[in-house]
C-alpha cells in the first residue's frame, strides 16, 4: 500500500494468519480495522463481535493452476488430484460449489488434497502435483517458483468465470475479501471514510503501477516477492467498493454458495443489514 507521510491518517500494519489470531487482536483492542475474507467477517459478526464490513477490496481472485492444457472446464477435473488451500475456507467452499454445480462429486469423482502454499508450490514445481486452486498472489508466487524448476504453470480455470457460467449471470463476481472496522463508534465515520478514500486511491495507483508496487509490498510482507506481486496484480481484481453499495451482490453470492456450503462456514447465517458499514 502506498504511503503518504503528509497524510494525517497514520497506519500501522499487523499481519495475521488464522481467524483466531485476528479474533485475539480484536478482543484485545489491538486493531481498528482489518483485511479479511468476507466469510471470516460473517463469522465474527454472527458471533456477536462489534464488526462492520467497510468495503469489498478484491473480487474473484481464485484460479486453477496447471502445467497442462487438458483442463478447459470444471468437469474436466474429474478423476484428477487437485490441491486446495484451507479446508472449509472460502477457496474450498467456492471450488466445491462449482464442482457440485457441474455434476462432479467433490468427495468421489476427484481427489482434493489440502496443502498450504509452500507445499502446493513445491509439488507443482516438481511436477508431483498437476492441479492446484490458488488465490492471488499465491498463484503468482507458485508460477514464478515453478519456472525456476522449468515448469510453466498456467491459470487454466478462472473460478469467477466459472461462477458466472454456473449462475448464468455474466457479471456475477465473487466478493472475496475486504476491510472490516471494529467498534466503529470508537474510530468514527470520518476516519473510516478517509481510509476508504486513501485505500481506493492507493488501489488505483497500484493497479496502474504494478512494477513500482511490488517492492513496496515486499517491504511490508517479506514473503510476497516483488515480481510475484507485479504479476499478481493483473489477476487480483483489486477494485474496492463500499460494502453498503454491494450488499445485494454479496447476499446473492452467499445465498447461492450456501446451497452447498455448511452453515457453520458462514457463522450460521447471512448477517443482517447492520453488518454493512454506512458511510
Amino acid at each position: 500500500m502506498a504511503e503518504n507521510p503528509a497524510d494525517d491518517l497514520t497506519l500501522e500494519i499487523k499481519p495475521w494468519q488464522k481467524g483466531d489470531q485476528l479474533l485475539a487482536m480484536i478482543t484485545s483492542n489491538e486493531v481498528n480495522m482489518s483485511a479479511t475474507p468476507i466469510t471470516n467477517a460473517f463469522m465474527l459478526y454472527n458471533k456477536g463481535i462489534d464488526i462492520q464490513l467497510v468495503n469489498v477490496a478484491v473480487w474473484g481472485m481464485l484460479y486453477v493452476l496447471s502445467p497442462e492444457d487438458s483442463v478447459q472446464s470444471v468437469a474436466d477435473l474429474k478423476g484428477k488430484q487437485v490441491s486446495v488451500t484451507g479446508q472449509g475456507g472460502i477457496h474450498d467452499l467456492v471450488f466445491r460449489h462449482l464442482l457440485i454445480q457441474n455434476g462432479v462429486d467433490p468427495d468421489k469423482d476427484l481427489e482434493i488434497i489440502y496443502l498450504d502454499l509452500p507445499e502446493a508450490s513445491a509439488k507443482l514445481a516438481t511436477g508431483e502435483l498437476k492441479y492446484a486452486v490458488l488465490n492471488e498472489p499465491n498463484s503468482s508466487m507458485a508460477t514464478l517458483n515453478a519456472r525456476k524448476g522449468g515448469v510453466e504453470l498456467k491459470r487454466v480455470l478462472d473460478l469467477q468465470e466459472e461462477w458466472q457460467k454456473v449462475t448464468g449471470q455474466e457479471k456475477a463476481r465473487i466478493p472475496q475479501a475486504g476491510f472490516v472496522v471494529l467498534n466503529s463508534e470508537q474510530l468514527g465515520k470520518n476516519a473510516v471514510a478517509k481510509f476508504q478514500e486513501r485505500f481506493s486511491a492507493a488501489a488505483e495507483w497500484v493497479n496502474n503501477n504494478p512494477a513500482e508496487a511490488g517492492p513496496i509490498v515486499e517491504k511490508h510482507f517479506e514473503w510476497m516477492k516483488a515480481p510475484a506481486v507485479e504479476q499478481s496484480l493483473q489477476y487480483a481484481r483489486l477494485n474496492p467498493e463500499w460494502a453498503a453499495d454491494c450488499q445485494e451482490e454479496i447476499e446473492a453470492f452467499f445465498t447461492e454458495l450456501s446451497k452447498t456450503a455448511p452453515p457453520e462456514a458462514l457463522g450460521g447465517k447471512l448477517p443482517d443489514a447492520e453488518f454493512y458499514f454506512q458511510p
Binding site: L23, M43, G86
Partner: peptide
Amino acid sequence: AREGMGQKIAISRSYLQ
C-alpha cells in the same frame, strides 16, 4: 488430517465454533 478428533478441533477453531 482430514478426519479424526484433532482435525475436528482444527475445524471448530477456524469456524470460530
